[in-house]
């Protein structure tokens, strides 16, 4: 770390040149490893990340992140654009594998199993860690086939009737069943933006995952559709663990129990959502949530 530390112990701001995140050396009282403020551990973790680094070619995008993701909890990840929160999210189901130049080091375990273990097959991993993307991306197929896609490729259903049940329950869980039950054979791309995003959530649910990753799921939606998705996230928490990246701090405050603040590839602060938004311990977090930059 080459932070410039002033005499009073605060870090000189070099946001423009900042290749490294600044770390407030003063508030070490509660922080654990590598300068993250707050409690990175939870009592009952679904996923544990230790010492995660991500490189795009020569450029390092993520620095030494330690974080636990608790069972049946919503954890939101906030931070300014380019802070690495989406990259970190994509590490959790190895979506970064699809990018040639991307390299991930460190350890990410799910229920005690290292997901970057060479012996682990990425196919079942992605079935148990589903993902919902920023822009709704239904396949250009019928609504039914969109939902049935996952169960089909994983061989989850034995017969047509079972598949019908999976489609129905997934759509019900995603709160879309009432709106589309009469037109399951219509193309999924014909739905409204909010419906499409709920269709994508239903699609992820259909393969019965344990964790659902959401990468700014509401940024392309209007406020009413956003409210529906947020409601849905709250309901899904009963059965799933959810990690959501969002640019909306109100959304993070509304839907999540824990919040992690990222800055320039580092995890600056993590804690209970209430605490982060009412009494942030790190000055960068405070500056961000009070709207001073970002």
């Amino acid at each position: 770390m080459d932070d410039v530390i002033n005499q009073d112990g605060t870090v000189a701001r070099e946001l423009k040149t900042g290749t490294d995140a600044e770390v407030d050396m003063q508030s070490t009282n509660e922080s654990q490893s590598r300068g993250t403020v707050g409690d990175i551990y939870v009592d009952d973790p679904r996923m544990t990340c230790r010492n995660v680094n991500v490189y795009y070619g020569d450029k390092q995008a993520i620095f030494d992140i330690d974080l636990d993701i608790g069972k049946n909890q919503v954890i939101s990840m906030i931070g300014p654009s380019g802070c690495g929160k989406s990259t970190f999210l994509r590490c959790l189901n190895r979506m970064n594998d699809t990018i040639d130049v991307c390299k991930v080091t460190g350890q990410i375990k799910m229920d005690g199993q290292d997901i970057y273990d060479g012996a682990l097959d990425v196919v079942p991993l992605r079935a148990s860690v589903g993902m919902v993307f920023q822009k709704p991306n239904p396949f250009p197929k019928s609504i039914y086939d969109n939902i049935a896609y996952g169960p089909r490729i994983h061989g989850l259903s034995d017969d047509k009737q079972h598949l019908d049940e999976i489609v129905e329950t997934s759509l019900k869980k995603a709160g879309l069943w009432e709106e589309v039950k009469d037109r399951l054979d219509q193309p999924g791309t014909g739905l409204s933006g909010g419906q499409q995003q709920r269709l994508c959530i239903a699609r992820a649910i259909a393969v019965s995952p344990e964790v659902i990753l959401m990468d700014e799921p509401c940024s392309a939606l209007d406020p009413i559709a956003t409210a529906k998705i947020e409601e849905l996230i709250d309901e899904l928490r009963e059965n799933y663990t959810i990690a959501i990246v969002t640019h909306s701090m109100q959304q993070a405050a509304r839907v999540s129990q824990r919040t992690a603040y990222f800055h320039l590839g580092k995890l600056i602060e993590v804690g209970e959502t209430d605490q982060i938004f009412t009494a942030p311990k790190h000055r960068l977090t405070e500056d961000y949530i009070t709207g001073r930059f970002g």
Binding site: N93, M95, T98, V122, V123, P124, L125, R126, A127, G130, M131, F133, N137, P138, F139, P140, Y149, G150, I153, H154, C200, R203, A204, V207
Partner: peptide, 10 residues
């Protein structure tokens, strides 16, 4: 589209 499909484990 690819992301959506890969994300489901295809």
């Amino acid at each position: 589209m690819r992301d959506g499909s890969y994300g489901l484990g295809a």
